[in-house]
Amino acid sequence: MKISLDNVVKTFDTFRAVHGVSLEIESGELVALLGPSGSGKTTILRMVAGLEFADDGHIYFGEEDATDIPVRDRGVGFVFQHYALFPHMTVAENIAFGMKVSKVKRSGDAIRERVQELLDLVQLTGLGQRFPGQISGGQRQRVALARALAVDPRVLLLDEPFGALDANVRRDLRRWLRKIHDDLGITTLFVTHDQEEALDLADRVVILDKGRIVQQGTPEEVCRSPHDAFVMRFLGDANALPATVRDGKAYVQDVEFDAAGLSDGTAEVLFRPADVAWREDGQGVPAQIVRVLDRPDSRRVLAKTTGGQSIEFDTAPEFPHRKGEAGFIDIRRPRVYPSGRT
């Protein structure tokens, strides 16, 4: 089921959470809404679910205008951040809930059979009689997914699905969710503030800031060509050096960068910690090493340019230099953005 948002607006009291967002999610696609807290991503998800009503704009499921369909008739599967399992029901009862309260009557046997099927799907065979308080966080997450899938939803919506889990469980569940999505082919929209999770899992990433979409595209597109400094910073560690633009060139302490298309004035040069080479021969921005941190597979160097800017970069574990040494940072893949909006 294709989902389209057309200029959707939501305001809470005086705070405008979502400013005219338009978005298309193709049938069978797995899309991540990625943004910092307060970016409106959860509000958008809840509006798609029908847990909030849009103040303005329209939401379509396929060709049908779903904007005013109440949540219980909208046919969405929603997985809540903290799972929201019914604590007084067993795992099996939780999964069966949607089928029991449904207007479509099913026989007890049909429900039991479907519950069994879903328990197998989420790899919780045999745990049907446990209560949610008796299983682990990762297992609860899977019960929540099974419960949402039990009602054969038209779309699956997940709110920070792995937020409350620890790193290892999170990675496993991520891969597993991708597999379930590929098997079932259900249109899926999920919210996260974790870029790694979004890039890992989604076909397409929609990056939000302050209630607006700032960029959307495949993980490759958003990683390789971030629209602006916000996206660049949000997707991963980034260094920034202030620069001055003159005639299509940006200058950081006399070092020249290509800034075609930028008007004259102040700008900033952004680059990833991995895109720096340390040189002693005068090519690049002069800097001094402040500290060297060791990591299992690399060394991270904290340095300060002679202009007083702190930067960080990664080097091979064999990096021989020490605190206090002076040299030059040679920046590969620099990105120049006009300064102002951060």
């Binding site: 929201a84 309260v101 949402a148 009602v151």
Partner: peptide
């Protein structure tokens, strides 16, 4: 947790 009632709503409960 209000999410419990919301969850029940998304599952189609009256």
């Amino acid at each position: 947790d209000p999410a419990l009632e919301e969850a029940a709503q998304t599952l189609g409960g009256s």
